[in-house]
């Protein structure tokens, strides 16, 4: 079963993703900030990360940079989600280590399609 780590400080948003992803058969783990996400990433491996930007303690950029810098870890794709739609926000996310950038609010279908693609799961 593919494991997805959701990193977002908003409980509602986490629940929203969780409902969509669990329905699709993924195992979902949550973290409320970058620090917690990093702890969990070191303890177990994930197949995909869904990361918010603005969070207390450590933001999404910080978390991704740290994650990508850990050579011992398997580098799974990361989806960054934010309310900002500007181009420089997008660029900043990519530079930090995201592999895709979606603008909130993400529709269930949009989220699901991209998760499945990044996980190589869409079948004919």
């Amino acid at each position: 079963m593919k494991r997805v780590l959701i990193v977002d400080d908003a409980a509602t948003v986490r629940m929203y993703y969780r409902l969509i992803l669990e329905e699709a058969g993924y195992l979902v783990v949550e973290a409320v900030n970058g620090v917690e996400a990093m702890e969990k990433s070191l303890r177990e491996s994930f197949d995909l990360y869904i990361v918010d930007i603005n969070m207390p303690k450590q933001d999404g950029y910080g978390f991704l940079r740290e994650l990508r810098g850990r050579d011992e870890l398997r580098q799974a794709p990361a989806l960054m989600v934010s309310t900002e739609a500007a181009d420089h926000d997008r660029k900043r996310a990519y530079a930090a280590g995201a592999n895709l950038y979606l603008v909130k609010p993400v529709k269930p279908q949009e989220l699901l399609v991209n998760c499945r693609l990044l996980l190589g799961e869409v079948r004919p």
């Binding site: 994650l67 990508r68 580098q75 592999n99 693609l117 990044l118 190589g120 799961e121």
Partner: peptide, 19 residues
């Protein structure tokens, strides 16, 4: 984190290929 970046991009591309 260039190595991580490359690996993650490769993983993303691999997902697309599989899909």
């Amino acid at each position: 984190w260039i190595a991580g970046r490359v690996k993650a991009a490769a993983a993303s591309l691999e997902g697309c290929l599989r899909s």
